[in-house]
Write a protein that binds this DNA or RNA. Sequence first.
RNA 1: GUCCCCAUCGUCUAGCCUGGUCCAGGACGACGGCCUUUCACGCCGUUAACAGGGGUUCAAAUCCCCUUGGGGACGCCA
Length: 464
Amino acid sequence: MSITTRFAPSPTGYLHIGGARTALFSWLLAKSKGGRFLLRVEDTDRERSTKEATDAIIQAMAWLDLAAEGTAVFQSDRFDIYNSYIDKLLAAGHAYWCSCTPEEVEAMREKARAQGKKPKYDGHCRELGLGPGEGRVVRFKGPQDGVTAFHDMVKGPTAVQNAEMDDMILRRGDGTPTYNLAVVVDDHEMGVTHVLRGDDHVANTPRQILLYQAFGWDVPNFGHVPMILGPDKAKLSKRHGALSVMEYKNMGYLPEALVNYLARLGWSCGDQEIFSREELVKLFSTGNLGSSPSVFDMKKLDWLNAHYIKESAPERLAALLPEFIGDQDGLKLDPAYLASIVPLLQPRAKTLVEMAEMARFFLVPAEALAYDEKAVTAQLTPDSKALLAELLPMYETAADYADHKALEAATQAFLDERGLKFKAVAQPLRVALTGKTASPGLFETMSVLGKPEALKRIRRALAL
RNA sequence: GUCCCCAUCGUCUAGCCUGGUCCAGGACGACGGCCUUUCACGCCGUUAACAGGGGUUCAAAUCCCCUUGGGGACGCCA
């Protein structure tokens, strides 16, 4: 039996971390069973939905490589379909017209609240047999007793008293359909068999099941994944920092790192931490989804990102790097050169932003190299400069800069002759070449810089 | 207020369904060490948890109840 899942965001903003995770889980659920994954844009609220948000969501999903099958379904294109289904419900006696105004309904809720009861619409028009009319809404005529039960893929058996639910609106006063109606119609028409969504939808599920039953349709499987919390254990929000998936891209995270991180947030497979896309597809199962909320931990994301940076092909990273380098004036940015730098930075950078910063001294010409003042005073002393000056001729004659080991051996031989320790030159030479006291390996750096550039830098340092 | 959900190291989690192999395992972090030309990487080690209380049982992180704490839902939003 083939399964179908879907991700159904409402385009009122960018794709946030929580949405991305549900999308990922839905995608994985489909792929792990060889099923289909669909995308539906829930834009029935015409005021809050925007084209920009829709594009941003699709772009973010593309970055995460969560491809949906076929073209996305837009609910705003389908109002006629929803209305025809509402008519069916009306005809079958599962729905009724209601003339109560929002103010009247609010008063009913207040009254119920005051009595310590659950705020609900009181069913005023339920048996009035009203017909259509200006501003009237259509409500679902739900059962007033009994229970609606379902087996949640993550929470297990779940049941709600029907008396807890009021007669939800299916069609608004302006003729547009509401969320619960549209979702049920679409999930049915799209053949969705498994619905994985955020925890905040649990309360909607029994209502939707009632609708499925009223229509006489098969009820899909539901699963509700707990939400993601900020470090203070409150619901993750803007004040916790980046929420948008694309902000993570801009902060220099690799999509596979985010995917791996998100997959492990609320899901597990024994002790395994690192998962390739293929492994995720192979190993994913809703049975291993956790049922308690989890805190988003940037440090662990950093660790995963560092891991994937180390694993990446230098050429790929080199191609991504330029967009993280601000003020590119006069910088040497050709792809081959960048690709030669990247391997020296891969073990050191946690993000591409960091990598771009670390790469900077490689990219500026010797004349423009910024020397750290403290480093210069501490390392480029008269003594160490004298030693560098002695070394210079050797580096001028050394032919093979491509082989950093040869450079190192030559330097070592020079030092041995004089009975000097490596430490005597290491830091001064490093400052001369990089302007800083911390850098990748000296001779690898020298080798990547190339002979003319390296010599220019040493000469410039001697003149400081 | 009403209804629903959740609860293992600071964090992500394994274990819970099918009690004993768990004085609770892994990972991130933090701390310490090793390596070393710097910074990293890597490697080694330390730290640290079954929310509390009652049961059931020969035996409970695991099953039941209560308490506490946290969260969510209650819209002509999705």
